[in-house]
Design a protein around this nucleic acid. Structure first.
Ligand SMILES: [Mn+2]
Ligand SMILES: [Mn+2]
Ligand SMILES: [Zn+2]
Ligand SMILES: [Zn+2]
Lengths: 143, 143
DNA sequence: GTCGCAAACGATAATCATTCTCATTTGCAT
DNA sequence: ATGCAAATGAGAATGATTATCGTTTGCGAC
């Protein structure tokens, strides 16, 4: 019973189907910001929806191409997606509990540009992930 | 007919077998610095050696754990290995020809430390890759 | 230099994430 | 309501990597 928003799909040139609306809703109104295809599949399944895993993969890729989602390849072999909110950021991931924090550092970004220029590259993209432990003591991210 | 160096393996607690010596030799005396398991397998095969692909995977992982090699996960789904020469560096990869340049930037490294500290993380590791084109004109890395 | 045996190998089956195939369903314009 | 291309879902296929298991080999003890 969540708000469905077909306008985003239409404006992305995608017809508004039930699976697409549900996946988009998960990213917009769900609790987890970074989700793998399997995560999405299980969440939809748990909420009683019958979507195929192949459809989840297809839709995630389509949303990525449409600019609605961004794909990341953290360690662990599976792609992770998040809502594209326009602004770039990088990630620091806890190797104990999997918690992810986001950050943006203009000094790092500008150094990258300078390095690429010096080496004669035109940057298309970059990925920066820091892996660590979020707090030695009580890991499951204290708050 | 290359120099084989069993001492590195012994000091790493690995017994000096033929496949291990050949793989290590490829990284020490071969032409490519960054190689996937399949790359290594094909190169050994081309040079007439009969090593199993499973053995290549096993040996690469063992060398990584022994600290002889470092593993990277560039885009493309396959792990890439290189000789561990003690000093950390990051990579910029050409999306046209696959050429890889290495760089180290202390400003980026120290910003990362600061960010992790601010967010309450103890850094274990990080990966930074820049993807781009090495030169619009004649890509296959001009000299 | 043999022996013995655990460690390592090689071939191949299995696993995992992801993509492909294809028969069936569905969004949506007439 | 009808038609049909586009989308879906179940399951097969793929590509990278790992596990299994019978055979081979490095190497220390004799
Ligand atoms: Mn993020
Ligand atoms: Mn390198
Ligand atoms: Zn960044
Ligand atoms: Zn670095």
């Amino acid at each position: 019973m969540n708000e469905l928003e077909p306008e985003h799909l239409k404006s992305a040139g995608l017809k508004s189907t039930l699976p697409r609306l549900k996946v988009l809703d998960l990213f917009k109104n769900g609790q987890a910001r970074h989700m793998s295809a399997e995560d999405v599949y299980q969440l939809l399944r748990d909420s009683g929806d019958n979507v195929g895993l192949a459809t989840v993969y297809r839709v995630l890729t389509q949303f990525e191409q449409a600019g609605l989602l961004v794909r990341h390849n953290f360690e662990g072999g599976k792609s992770v997606f998040e809502l594209n909110e326009g602004t770039h950021h990088d990630h620091i991931v806890c190797m104990q509990c999997g918690h992810v924090e986001e950050f943006y550092d203009s000094a790092i970004e500008s150094r990258q540009k300078k390095i690429a220029a010096e080496l004669g590259f035109e940057i298309h993209d970059h990925t920066l992930q820091i892996y660590g432990d979020c707090t030695k003591t009580k890991c499951p991210h204290r708050r």
